[in-house]
């Protein structure tokens, strides 16, 4: 650790060495914040929140959706949409190889998983970013799956919830990835016009192009405690302004104080709080029925039932926490 990093309070350090340590697989786990040794079963029961210091650990997309949605039938949306390499991009590694590596590591095809399911009996569409997949970066597949999720939520007039965890745009797809910011934001205009609730639930970290598009556009913007959320990465800002960043800079509490988010929600309460909020937002819908778009049908249509290529998903994926993906944080 350099002398400067030592000066920076641990709460705003982003590349501190403790994050680099890989969590050993098996029975025991270590809290990256307080270094407490934790029993895995207990940790899982506690929604991957450290029972000692309440640190919210990063979790995989599928694990998130599993703990968020009701048990029972879930339909994955856009599962067959897969990444391609439009620019034949190659840095120190080929993009194709990076994709294969990420796919092996996460057992996902790309960085966003979208599912239709229920939250305490309320039909919803929920999407979750997987930070382990190339830093949760947004490329064409993430954008397209997000839009498919939004469209399904629009067609069935059911709420849409996204859990973000992303370093930003995926550089390897260049302009295609930048334009996903426009694409995802544009899709949300339909939900807004139809009065269908969109909740953005930001988790650690939510940066760059994801932060500056779909994440900040929620009817309700929620953040998990102490999540890093912002446009430019702390290192970039430090290099630009040559100033010490204030304590807690770009953390959830900082964002709430500055008016960017509605509330901070502990992961262990997310189901209760979101379902309570949604119940109220959806209650208003019946009153304003006449004002909604004609396309927005309130009743789920039987013909939009699971298509043959969609699979029911219930199993939990194992998580692996690596910090290499931190490098993908960019504009």
């Amino acid at each position: 650790m350099s002398w400067f990093e030592k000066l920076v309070p641990s709460t705003i350090r982003t590349n501190s060495s403790n994050k680099k340590s890989t969590v050993p697989e098996g029975l025991w786990n270590k809290c990256p914040n307080c270094n407490a040794i934790l029993y895995n079963t207990e940790l899982e029961r506690n929604f991957s929140v450290c029972p000692k210091c309440d640190h919210h650990m990063r979790i995989a997309a599928r694990a998130r959706l599993n703990m968020f949605l009701d048990e029972g039938a879930r339909v994955e949306i856009g599962k067959n949409i897969k990444p391609v390499d439009p620019l034949r991009f190659k840095d120190s590694k080929r993009y194709k190889d990076r994709l294969i590596q990420a796919q092996k590591q996460t057992r996902e095809n790309d960085a966003l998983v979208v599912m239709r399911g229920q939250l305490k009996g309320q039909d919803i569409v929920a999407a979750a970013f997987d930070f382990n997949f190339m830093g949760g970066s947004m490329g064409s597949v993430v954008g397209e799956r997000f839009v498919r999720g939004v469209n399904q939520s629009f067609e069935l007039a059911i709420p849409f919830i996204v859990f973000t965890a992303s370093g930003g745009a995926r550089m390897q797809e260049s302009l295609f990835s930048l334009f996903q910011m426009a694409k995802t934001s544009a899709a949300l205009t339909r939900l807004s016009a139809a009065g269908i609730p969109y909740i953005s639930f930001m988790t650690d970290p939510t940066m760059g192009g994801v932060s500056a598009s779909l994440a900040m556009l929620g009817d309700i913007n929620i953040a998990e405690p102490n999540a890093l959320i912002g446009f430019a990465g702390p290192r970039v800002i430090e290099q630009t302004v040559h100033e010490k960043l204030p304590e807690g800079f770009q953390r959830s509490e900082f964002l709430q104080e500055h008016g960017a988010i509605d509330l901070i929600v502990d992961r262990r309460e997310m189901r209760d709080k979101i379902s309570s909020i949604l119940a109220m937002l959806m209650a208003g819908r019946t009153v304003t029925l006449g004002l909604t778009e004609p396309e927005a049908e309130l009743e789920p249509k039987p013909d939009t039932e699971p298509k043959p290529d969609l699979e029911t998903e219930t199993e939990t994926e194992p998580e692996s926490m690596t910090a290499e993906a931190d490098d993908n944080i960019n504009a």
């Binding site: 910011m181 426009a182 934001s185 544009a186 949300l188 205009t189 807004s192 016009a193 932060s211 500056a212 598009s213 779909l214 994440a215 900040m216 556009l217 959320i229 912002g230 446009f231 430019a232 990465g233 970039v236 800002i237 630009t240 302004v241 100033e243 960043l245 204030p246 800079f249 770009q250 500055h258 008016g259 960017a260 504009a331």
Partner: peptide, 27 residues
């Protein structure tokens, strides 16, 4: 070159300002 990566820019919601424009320009 890009949106300004500064402390006050973050405090005043650089992300939200950009996102809002993408949203509003669509319609």
């Amino acid at each position: 070159p890009g949106a300004y990566p500064g402390i006050e820019a973050e405090e005043r919601g650089q992300s939200e300002a950009i996102a809002r424009n993408l949203f509003e320009m669509t319609r």
